[in-house]
Nucleic acid binder design. Structure first.
Length: 695
DNA sequence: GGGGAAGTAAACATCG
DNA sequence: GCGATGTTTACTTCCC
């Protein structure tokens, strides 16, 4: 299993790569946008202007077929250029209009051939500057306006609006043309012919050159993405994303960037749609933080969606706020209190292209993770199926946790097949009930060929019995004739402890066995004998004479004594755990930042960090803590009637009093939880507070 | 390979 | 005598 774990990790990586292979334009664009965020836009647009633009812009899909239907880096870039164009045009027009005020209105400009609606159109372009400052100044200076003057002004405004609209259309048209040029530039680059195109081209060129300069000046420490270095390790990115996926993204980004550069050199890449690189640096403020925004983009990978903010802004447990720091990707702005955080959130992380892009990146990451989870589930299923098929083989490597039971069940079933059935000829290896509602780990495949197994289910690897375990797998064991991976002693103890009075007669123990486990509904002679044997053998089981007769109780002290094999020293288990964690690591990386904030310990993070692997780790944790959770059976809630949810809920992570040497943090906790060959140690956590870290 | 734990089988005793 | 219960022994397997 160790080897398999290692292989699994590797294959996981490949799987991740595969998952990332479905690279997407969104990520690419977003990433590039993020990168470009770190670069200085050539367009000098004030923060207020851009904010206004961002708020009012209407965005359209990327001309390059980008799937973005909402604000994108492209659109922002286009907006800026368009904005600049408009400003220039307006200035020219204002001059012309001032001249035309005498002669009349000037007809709108030309260039309105095709209203291609694939270009960002800013409503803001149309509204805020209908009256230019000069005009306003004139108005103010004139103090009094005659009706004619007002009419002229109105007409001017209308003309301006028309011109702006036409400019926008022109800009759209240019976008299309430039896009076409981009598509054609591989074959024959075309030079912009029209003056307007040249103007835009010049601006774009300058902008892109500036972008390139910024990229070159970008500190490597913050972002390793460098043009022409596609193989550079994406360390910062790797923290937020799967490395292979990042590599894939990097390739896409760099390839696009290379094309961008090449196109730029050809003077034919001036189209805004060449890349989704946004000149989105919305403001100078963003320029300042942009170098960090490079990492922001990576961090955005694990940023909660902004869409959810509105629902949670009123909650002080805001997912974007913790430890007095804004958790927005790359922000890390210190907010003294929640109110300041809210202000900061609304001010710094308003709805703009960057935020939207980051959200999209995050969405993409989540999708990738989900995809990865699905793949891993398939892999797990295949593994178990494979192992089941291999059950005819003489040996099967033990596996941790419930997988062990699955494997061992199959193995022992095959091993004991000649001798397994004789116990109950009347009940052959019954077709196992397909259990879908059963435990998360044990699957139907592991249940086949399960017969009387002369084998103990290594408590070292395996799950110490616990209320949680039984509760989790209750239905499974009740319906499936699968031998529970617990020792007789543990089961007996569990049965006794689950009783209200912590004592049971032998018959009641029998009943508990048959009630809880379908497996024990047959081969009665065998397992009953074993029960009796264990009751007598182990000192922990004390026979007490009662009015009704003899009842059996559990001497916990003795039970504790009888576990010499401390799993704290069980390397295989630890290895398993570590392997699991390693397995989790790649996917976990996406959320390391958030976890780091909380200083979440290792295996807790493994379960928390990644939603996709959270199940795995959670299952493991459930199993691990199930051992300790068994406290409940000794506690007030140990009544048999407690619900599975109740049983599963508590997670004890406190040190084991009887084994102080095992208190070494989460890992030692894990080992402690597993090392016991039995479930006795559950007792040790009796009345211990529930670990609330793991949620 | 040894030792310990666990599972299985069996013999035996006791008791109702 | 029979079955349930309880004890003990022997053997095997597994794991460390």
């Amino acid at each position: 299993m160790m080897q398999e774990s290692g292989t699994e990790t590797k294959s996981n990586g490949s799987a991740i790569q595969n998952g990332a292979s479905g690279g997407n334009h969104l990520l690419e664009c977003s990433l590039r946008e993020v990168r470009s965020n770190g670069e200085t836009p050539s367009v000098e647009i004030g923060a207020a202007d851009l904010a206004h633009l961002q708020q009012q812009q209407v965005l359209y899909p990327c001309p390059l077929g980008c799937e973005l239907n909402s604000p994108t880096s492209f659109s922002l870039q286009a907006l800026q250029v368009a904005r600049q164009l408009l400003l220039q045009q307006q200035q020219q027009q204002q001059q012309q209009q001032q001249q035309q005020q005498v002669s009349g209105l000037k007809s709108p400009k030309r260039n309105d051939k095709q209203p291609a609606l694939q270009v960002p159109v800013s409503v803001a372009m149309m509204t805020p500057q209908v009256i230019t400052p000069q005009q306003m100044q004139q108005i103010l200076q004139q103090q009094v306006l005659t009706p004619q003057q007002l009419q002229v002004l109105l007409q001017q405004q209308q003309a301006l609006m028309l011109q702006q609209q036409q400019l926008q259309e022109f800009y759209k048209k240019q976008q299309e043309q430039l896009q076409l040029q981009l598509l054609q530039q591989q074959h024959a680059g075309k030079q912009p012919k029209e003056p307007q195109q040249q103007q835009v081209a010049t601006q774009q060129l300058a902008f892109q050159q500036q972008l390139l300069q910024m990229q070159q000046l970008q500190p490597q420490g913050l972002l390793t993405i460098q043009p022409g270095q596609p193989t550079l390790p994406l360390q910062p990115l790797a923290q937020g994303m799967i490395p292979t996926e990042l590599q894939q993204l990097w390739k896409e980004v760099t390839s696009s960037h290379t094309a961008e550069e090449a196109a730029s050199n050809n003077h034919s890449s001036l189209d805004l749609s060449t890349t989704c690189v946004s000149s989105s640096a919305p403001s100078k403020t963003s320029l300042i933080i942009n170098p960090h925004a490079s990492t922001n983009g990576q961090l955005s990978v694990h940023t909660p969606k902004r869409e959810s903010l509105s629902h949670e802004e009123h909650s002080h447990s805001h997912p974007l706020y913790g430890h007095g720091v804004c958790k927005w990707p790359g922000c890390e702005a210190v907010c003294e209190d929640f109110q300041s955080f809210l202000k900061h959130l609304n001010s710094e992380h308003a709805l703009d292209d960057r935020s939207t892009a980051q959200c999209r990146v995050q969405m993409q990451v989540v999708q990738q993770l989900e995809l990865q989870l699905a793949k891993d589930k398939e892999r797990l299923q295949a593994m178990m199926t494979h192992l089941h098929v291999k059950s005819t083989e003489p040996k099967a490597t033990p596996q941790p946790l419930n997988l062990v039971s699955s494997v061992t069940l199959s193995k022992t079933a095959s091993e004991a097949s000649p001798q397994s059935l004789p116990h109950t000829p009347t009940t052959p290896t019954a077709p196992i009930t397909p259990v879908t509602q059963g435990p998360s780990v044990i699957t139907t495949t592991s249940m086949h060929n399960v017969g009387p197994i002369r084998r103990r289910y290594s408590d070292k690897y395996n799950v110490p019995i616990s209320s949680a375990d039984i509760a989790q797998n209750q239905e499974f064991y009740k319906n499936a004739e699968v031998r529970p991976p617990f020792t007789y002693a543990s089961l007996i103890r569990q049965a006794i402890l689950e009783s209200p009075e912590k004592q049971l007669t032998l018959n009641e123990i029998y009943n508990w066995f048959t009630r809880m486990f379908a497996y024990f509904r047959r081969n009665a002679a065998t397992w009953k004998n074993a029960v009796r044997h264990n009751l007598s053998l182990h000192k922990c089981f004390v026979r007490v004479e009662n009015v009704k007769g003899a009842v059996w109780t559990v001497d916990e002290l003795e039970f504790q004594k009888r576990r010499p094999q401390k799993i704290s020293g069980n390397p295989s288990l630890i290895k398993n755990i570590q392997t699991s964690h390693t397995y989790c690591t790649p996917l976990n990386a996406a959320l390391q930042a958030s976890m780091a904030e909380n200083s979440i310990p290792l295996y807790t993070t493994a379960s928390m960090g990644n939603p996709t692997l959270g199940n795995l780790a959670s299952a493991m944790r459930e199993e691990l803590n199930g051992a300790m959770e068994h406290t409940n059976s000794n506690g007030s809630d140990s009544s048999p009637g407690r619900s599975p949810m109740q049983a599963m809920h508590p997670v004890h992570v406190k040190e084991e009093p009887l084994d102080p040497d095992e208190n070494e943090g989460p890992l030692s906790l894990v080992t402690t939880a597993n090392h016991s060959p039995d479930f006795d140690h559950d007792r040790d956590y009796e009345d211990e507070p529930v670990n609330e870290d793991i949620e």
